[in-house]
Structure formats: structure tokens, C-alpha cells
Design a protein around this nucleic acid. Structure first.
Length: 271
DNA sequence: CAAAGGTCCTGCTCGC
DNA sequence: TGCGAGCAGGACCTTT
């Protein structure tokens, strides 16, 4: 479910509703996510004021007085701010209870997500320290991609999905961006020209921006923090469109598996 | 039974 | 022979 636009949509949804609020309690129903929820999380959070809600890649950073909650939504996670008296459902693993009769509730059926805590600089945390640039920042550009990709022989789709290269480009938007840039997803990253990378960097930025603007992509059950769906799925040009006509040339959209992930592209438009 | 939006970790191969 | 970099595959889990 969540790629960068979905995480950003979530951040924007929850931030105004939890910022400056005090955490009264933390209810953990299922500790075992990708990693166990830290045993001391409740003690670390109780009584703390939420100072800020930011994002690095797909990690959400909830800054408290003395430390930061690091959250990742994994493959199926979602966050909502709801009334505490709404009974939790099967996959509602943790409630961060606020002093407003509301709580921040994490639902994650597949439990690939994470809830961690750090007292240090979260950007120096093991999981965040080696992340590549943010795709919407200026340091993510043709020169960066070109230099970073020299002597890399893997498929360009896998290259741009590598969080050490750039954060936030997941399986859907990788296919969409490569289509927009006219680059074949299996082409070796190291054989792509600087001009093509200029086009790809622009495509990634514009696809992600457009997706954020429309509230993310809804596939299956993604809803933003207020329960409304994202509408970007209507704008997807190739993802999930195997067998349909290409919107540029009319030839049939191809599906194949790259690095164990579904990939969609047009063999006529993408070389 | 296969596949679904993520990504860390392990272990192998290759080249210096 | 040793070491680091790059890369493929496995692992985690539930639902449709």
C-alpha cells in the first residue's frame, strides 16, 4: 500500500490532529511487527508532548520532548486518528492515546511495518542513516543518478527502487516513472545516458508530486488518515494494466517480473 | 496456489 | 588469499 505519496498523505492527515497533543497512554495489542515494538515504548511516550510529525523516505518521525517514534507502514500499514472508544479490529496493533479522547491507531495486517523509538537523532538511526536523497529535493537529479549508476549492471527499475539510491520510489511509481521517461525497466542502470536520467529524474518528481496531490494511490484498501481513499489509481498509465492499450501508442502493455516484483511497461515506448 | 504496495539481511561471485 | 562491492534470493505475514 504505502509508497512515498501514501506516507506523505498520511503524515499530512495525522499531523494537525496529533501535533502539540500529550500522549496519555500507549496500548500495544500485538508487539511482533517487522521487529518487536520496544518494551519501553509506553514508558518513553507517556506524558510526552508531540512536537512534530515529519517524514524521511517512507519512515514517519513523530518527535516528542525526549526522543522520536520511528514508524514504517510496511506493505499494508495505515494510520488513523480516531475516537478511543471505537473498538479495535483484528489487525489494529497499537494505539497511541492522546489527551483529546482520540488515539493514533496503527493497522497492519501483514505486519511488515515497524514502530521503534530513539532518543538520539533519528536521521542517525541505523535504518535511516544510509538512505539516499529525497526524490523531490534538488540534489536528486540527472548528475546524481548518472554518477551513482556507473558500473551498475542491475535493471534500472531495481536501481531506482534501492533506498540507498533514492528513497520513496516503490513498485507502482517505479513502473509509472519509467514509462513516463520512455526507459525500459530491464535496461542496465549503468548503460543509461545522462539525458535519459534527466528525463527519469523529472518523471519521478512529477509522478510523485501528482500522486501526493491526489491523495495517494488506492489499491485494495488504502485510505488516508480520515478514511477517504486516494484517487491516483485512476491516473496510473501502466501499473496493473497488463493487456490494455498503451495510452501513448496503443500497443499492448506488457507485464513481467523483475526482482520478484510485478513490472508493467510498453515495449514500443520504452527502450 | 499465487500474488499483493517494502526492505532488511545473508551469502555468493567477481575483480583487484 | 583477502576484502569490498554488487547482486540475487530469502525472510518476515495475512488476505484475496
Amino acid at each position: 500500500m504505502p509508497e512515498l505519496p501514501e506516507v506523505e498523505t498520511t503524515r499530512r492527515g495525522i499531523s494537525p490532529r496529533i501535533k502539540h497533543k500529550t500522549i496519555e497512554n500507549v496500548t500495544i495489542r500485538h508487539r511482533q511487527l517487522r521487529w518487536p515494538i520496544p518494551a519501553n515504548l509506553k514508558a518513553k511516550c507517556k506524558g510526552q508532548i508531540i512536537k512534530d510529525v515529519s517524514r524521511r523516505g517512507k519512515y514517519l518521525l513523530i518527535k516528542l520532548d525526549t526522543g522520536t517514534i520511528i514508524m514504517h507502514l510496511g506493505m499494508s500499514g495505515s494510520l488513523r486518528v480516531i475516537d478511543c472508544n471505537i473498538p479495535p479490529e483484528k489487525h489494529d496493533h497499537i494505539d497511541i492515546v492522546l489527551n483529546t479522547d482520540k488515539c493514533l491507531r496503527l493497522r497492519d495486517p501483514r505486519r511488515f511495518g515497524a514502530v521503534l523509538f530513539t532518543t538520539g537523532d533519528p536521521l542517525e538511526h541505523k535504518l535511516l542513516k544510509h538512505l539516499g536523497p529525497e526524490p523531490l529535493e534538488k540534489d536528486f537529479n540527472a548528475t546524481y543518478l548518472f554518477n551513482k549508476s556507473r558500473k551498475r549492471n542491475l535493471a534500472v527499475k531495481l536501481f531506482i527502487m534501492d533506498s540507498k539510491v533514492v528513497v520513496g520510489v516503490g513498485n507502482i511509481y517505479a513502473s509509472e516513472s519509467l514509462f513516463k521517461a520512455g526507459i525500459h525497466p530491464k535496461k542496465a542502470a549503468g548503460k543509461i545516458t545522462k539525458e535519459q536520467y534527466a528525463s527519469l529524474a523529472r518523471a519521478i518528481k512529477s509522478v510523485l508530486k501528482a500522486a501526493i496531490k491526489s491523495g495517494g494511490t488506492t489499491l485494495r484498501d488504502f485510505t488516508s488518515s480520515d478514511g477517504s481513499p486516494g484517487y491516483f489509481s485512476q491516473s496510473l498509465k501502466v501499473y496493473g494494466r497488463k493487456g490494455e492499450p498503451c495510452s501513448k501508442c496503443g500497443k499492448t502493455i506488457t507485464h513481467s517480473v523483475i526482482g520478484q516484483r510485478a513490472t508493467y511497461y510498453c515495449t514500443h515506448c520504452q527502450k
